[in-house]
Computed example of a mutant assay.
Amino acid sequence: MATGNGSEPPKRRKGTRAAIGSTTLAQVARAADVSEATVSRVINRKYGVAPATRQAVEEALKQIGYERPLDNRLVVMLTPNLKNPIFALQGERVENELNPHGLTTIICPVYPGTPRERDYVESLVDAGVAAIVFLSSSNTLRDEDHRVVQFVESRGIPYVSINGGFPEYEAPVVSTDDWRAAELAVGHLWDLGHRRVGLLAGPTGNLPADRRVEGFREALRRRGVEDPEPFVVRQHFNVEGGRQAAAVLLEQGATGIVASSDEMAFGAYRAAERAGLRVPEDVSVVGYDDSPVLDFIGPPLTTVRQPIERIAENVARIVTSLISSRAVSNEEILVEPELRLRRSTAPAPSGA
């Protein structure tokens, strides 16, 4: 799905050049100890330049104050799918933040870690890709072959990741604070008197899922639970995965359930219904994401909201800085989530 604002490109700031002059090209070549042709290839992000050479040229460009123009350039967003409302909303927010800078966004739904992810990037890079945004794509998978980012690095294309980065490379990352999200959910249920609290966790090796598990364990240990592990059940981030995991927790007597996605929380509703239990009278459920439909299900779902607007603001700031060759920090930015109270949580049943 390709989108863009269609507006006129913004005026350039003073000192920003659309092209680098021949005199300056020679200066950069001398400073980096390379040929002018190599400098040109780096500026235009062409292949065939060694990483160390590319870095030397980029440093020389920064020294002379050269900034690449922002207008008429593409930003590619790689996301697992657009069926999940949270990915669609996040992509829309990032697009809205980038459009005023004259950047056109292309959203590519891919299955993370597959050849299709790299195929999208390779097919678009020569069209003038200014930057890549990994929106919960292969950057969330710990043990996958990250060939796509290897290709992006080889071409010197700047990139930023959302909700997890690539451990083998230093690049900017903007994430929801999943440890804090787990603390908010557990703390809410604990304050309502629930002492048998379980987690519907995502698959092992998925970075956000693993972080939420770590946060869940820490939150229970702080409250005196010595062994939280039996109350962590791993499954897929979908309704059926949530139903299967919740069924296990309900058999163990859980009265409070923390889901790692709103879809998994919907699965917990189904598991409770099949077990003859009511939400929230018998079991309380907390979701994660804050999908737009939550006010329209019964009962409306209490959830931990991902701060997609603030994530998008940070991503746009980083992307525009990277494209202009301005320095940015590679320290991961953790954005604070918030608890949205609805009617799927209530005090623990008496005697629980």
Rank of each mutant, 00 (worst) to 15 (best):
K62Q: 15
W179D: 06
A348L: 04
L74Y: 14
E313C: 15
P228N: 01
V285K: 08
P85G: 08
V213P: 00
V233N: 09
L322R: 03
E97S: 15
E263H: 09
T176G: 09
E281R: 14
Y169R: 14
R180E: 14
F151H: 06
R234K: 15
N5G: 15
E117C: 06
L98I: 04
A246V: 04
R196D: 01
P85C: 04
P158F: 14
A130W: 03
I297S: 05
S175L: 02
P337H: 11
E281M: 14
G276L: 15
A31W: 02
A60T: 01
A56S: 11
L61R: 04
T24L: 08
G48M: 07
E281Y: 08
I323L: 02
P300L: 07
D289W: 01
P167I: 11
W190R: 00
R317Q: 13
F151Y: 13
S137A: 11
T302E: 02
E218I: 04
D33L: 08
A352R: 10
G156D: 08
R195N: 10
L189E: 05
P230F: 10
D282R: 06
G193S: 01
G267T: 04
Y288R: 09
E153L: 06
A346D: 12
G4Q: 11
W179H: 10
P9M: 02
A60P: 00
R326T: 02
H101L: 05
Y47N: 06
A130V: 03
E8A: 14
Q252G: 09
R274I: 00
R180P: 00
P80V: 04
F134R: 00
D289E: 03
I297L: 05
V233C: 12
E251W: 02
E214R: 12
S161P: 08
F237I: 14
F166R: 03
A259Y: 00
D290N: 15
A272L: 12
I157E: 07
A246R: 03
R116L: 07
F237S: 11
I297Y: 07
